[in-house]
Design a protein around this nucleic acid. Structure first.
Length: 672
RNA sequence: GCCGCAGUGGCUCAGGGGUAGAGCGCGCCAUUGGUAAUGGUGAGGUCGGGAGUUCGAAUCUCCCCUGUGGCACCA
């Protein structure tokens, strides 16, 4: 931190427009900005130096490419603003609640959080107070200064002021890295930076959102800290837009829509399991029918396997040792009926509700002797599984304890893994497209540290999946070490209408389970061989996927999936007879239609059915009755179209016919 | 499982130590209205469960359950 700039070499700074400014010696971003102009100085937040973002106060002592960062550089600006906002929050918290320790406070999507250690956790009521203090700190416009400290000095300092977590963090900073401390007014925090030149630059476009518990270093064995989440934007308008987005997302909440549309419910006697109502189950059945059709086209054969299986099988498959804590275990015993409560002896054989279908599918495969000529064998099952998920994990349809997977297992030879994987990727892409999710990302999760099987086998397995992706030109990223213990997997993450991603599909190649459960086939040379098992699912679970679709479509399902596809309603009771006839005609055409003959005004009925998100309202009055027509009003539109009844039915039937991926498979064939 | 918050009629929510309120919905009556709420009227709850404090608790305290926002978990 030398103040002596006289006898230094000149420093040339090249700006984004390629112009170069020369200074006598080391120069700060602040000096550069003021040299360019007062407007820029005022707007400057930080400076990019040879690609790295620096504080404005940091001296640049060598020729560099630089650019001043202002709020116009949205991404960089937000990174800095949000992190400063976290610091200002921490300062406010420590001013208001002395004795609170700070830990870490990183940026996250749309905002930041900071974890504090405090005997009494913060509550939502504290947020307004903290926020008010933050605005004060911004008003104080405290200068923020970067200091490089000696590691041990820093540790001693933070220990001496009772910041034991910070001291621990410094201890874990790699040896070669500088320990930087930022001074913000009289408040200090260990931080990598960069930061704004002063708190006043933050502005007022921030808001504290919620409090939550979080484990120190993300480990549930550690103590729980108290976390405060906040959001921060370049200006008030952006903040408002963000809050509006949250409100819009809330409106799509499948739990809310599920209640409003009478699709399903939960109750405490079956926590985590869904009661599907008639309307919701129509969606389920339609989706299941569609998937069943697609699987049939790809030569899967549907099976159905038991719910309750002996623990012996789970021991053999490996689930008993690894996944037992998530399994519902049932003693195979008749409980005593002498008392009010069932008395169990405790020494009965144990059964378990299946958490997965794969061991059962192996049992089906193992019936009879299989030849290499029989492979691949593709089994599908809408397998109902139970998993004892932690109470805190349950979340509407998205995380349930009883779930139905669109599960399937392909038993094949090693040399068939790639082509089977290609076929699966094609099927999955086509299904997602049919269901309204054309965009998805793929991750290839490779071998974890703890794994079964030799490296040679893993090489083969990973390669096979990779080749499948490349064969179809599917872009993907690696997820190193994220594979299952028995084999690598592909994860398919789809994007919904409001930009969120959901992992639904999966393809896992498994060389281990066939061995554990002793599945074999007879090879061409007469030897016994192990088949490779491909675990695959497209939707994942029906429950969760329907939840995702409800939110994706905001309840406005495409016509073929809508529980009620059309409502027919007369304007006056004079048209009741005709409306009844129209209704019968729609039902005869296979459409799911309701007839609303209630004595209500048409406005009222249109409003109600629009709220119920019925895709088509067919209004008939005497005009339509006399001409054999219907007035069609589509959901989301204020317009009406008067059509001949037959034409209207034909259009609805066409739109209500489930897609079958034909378009896509034709394209695929044309391209290959 | 851990931390915070919540739990009032079918739904959304107000109230808050002296024996429960609103809107919507529902029932009934009138209204036959041309595309997002016709008018009137009536019936619904003992305030998640248990214990305690109190003359008295839905309202305060404690415990439990469930939900919810996160954390951990998600084979």
């Amino acid at each position: 931190m030398s103040e002596n700039k006289s006898a230094q070499n000149p420093v040339n700074l090249r700006l984004p427009d390629s112009s170069v400014r020369t200074f006598d010696g080391p120069v700060t971003g602040t000096t550069l900005a003021s040299d360019i102009g007062p407007g820029l100085l005022k707007a400057a937040l930080a400076i990019r130096v040879n690609g790295e973002v620096w504080d404005l106060s940091r001296e640049i002592d060598a020729d560099s490419d630089v650019s001043i960062i202002t709020k116009r550089d949205t991404d960089e600006a937000l990174d800095i603003l949000r992190h400063d906002c976290a610091h200002i929050m921490a300062e406010a918290v420590q001013e208001l609640f002395p004795g609170t320790q700070v830990t870490i406070g990183p940026n996250i999507t749309d905002g930041f959080f900071y974890d504090f250690a405090r005997d009494k956790p913060f509550t939502e009521d504290d947020l307004a107070v903290i926020e008010a203090r933050m605005h004060e700190i911004v008003k104080r416009d405290e200068p923020i200064e970067r200091e490089v400290w000696d590691r041990n000095t820093a540790i001693d300092h933070f220990k001496s002021i009772g910041e034991h977590y910070k001291a621990e963090i410094i201890g874990s900073i790699p040896a070669g890295e500088a320990v930087t401390v930022y001074r913000q007014g009289s408040w200090k925090d260990l931080c990598r930076g960069p930061h704004l030149p002063s708190t006043g630059k933050l502005g007022d476009a921030f808001k504290l959102m919620k409090v939550a518990g979080a484990y120190w270093r993300g480990d549930s064995k550690n103590e729980m800290l108290t976390r405060i989440y906040g959001t921060c934007w370049t200006d008030k308008k952006e903040l408002k837009a963000y809050l509006h987005r949250l409100e819009e997302a809330e409106k799509r909440d499948h739990r809310k829509l599920g209640r409003e549309m009478d699709l399903f419910h939960f109750q405490e006697e079956a926590q985590g399991s869904v009661f599907w109502h008639p309307q919701g189950y129509k969606v389920w059945l339609e989706l299941e029918k569609y998937i069943r059709g697609r699987l049939g086209d790809d030569d899967y054969r549907e099976i159905k396997t038991p719910q309750l299986l002996d623990s012996k099988l789970w021991e053999q498959s490996g689930h008993w040792s690894k996944f037992r804590e998530n399994m519902f275990v049932v003693p195979d015993e008749v409980p005593s009926i002498d008392d009010d409560t069932p008395i169990l002896s405790g020494d009965a054989k144990l059964m378990a509700l299946k958490p997965m279908n794969c061991p059962a599918h192996v049992q089906v495969f193992k019936q009879g002797i299989k030849s290499y000529r029989d492979l691949p064998i593709r089994y599908a099952e809408f397998g109902c599984c139970h998993r004892n998920e932690a109470h805190g994990a349950l979340h509407g349809l998205m995380r349930v304890r009883q779930m139905t997977q669109d599960d399937g297992h392909v038993f094949c030879r090693e040399d068939q893994v790639t082509e089977e994987s290609v076929a699966f990727c094609d099927l999955l892409a086509s299904v997602y497209s049919d269901l309204g999710f054309p965009n998805f990302k793929v991750l290839l999760a490779t071998r974890p540290d703890v794994r079964a099987g030799s490296d040679e086998v893993w090489d083969k397995a990973e390669k096979a999946l990779e080749m499948a992706l490349k064969a179809r030109g599917i872009e993907f990223d690696y997820a190193p070490g994220e594979g299952a213990f028995y084999g690598p997997k592909l994860e398919f993450h789809l994007s919904d209408a409001i930009g969120r991603t959901w992992q639904c599909g999966t393809l896992q190649s498994d060389f281990v389970l066939p061995e554990r459960l002793d599945a074999t086939y007879i090879a061409q040379d007469g030897s016994k061989q192990r088949p490779v098992m491909l675990h695959r699912a497209i939707l994942g679970t029906l429950e969760r996927f329907i939840g995702i679709m409800i939110e994706h479509y905001a309840g406005r399902m495409p016509l073929w999936l809508a529980p009620t596809q059309a409502v027919i309603t007369p304007i006056t009771s004079d048209a009741d007879a005709y409306a009844t006839k129209v209704h019968a005609a729609l039902e005869a055409a296979g459409l799911r239609a309701d007839l609303d003959l209630r004595n209500e005004k048409i406005n009222y009925k249109v409003r109600e059915h629009s709220h119920a998100k019925v895709p088509a309202i067919l209004v008939v009055g005497m005009r339509e009755a006399d001409n054999g027509q219907v007035s069609v009003r589509r959901l989301g539109s204020k317009d009406q179209t008067v059509l001949d009844l037959d034409d209207a039915i034909a259009a609805l039937v066409a739109e209500g016919t489930p897609p079958n991926g034909e378009e896509r498979s034709r394209e695929t064939q044309a391209n290959s």
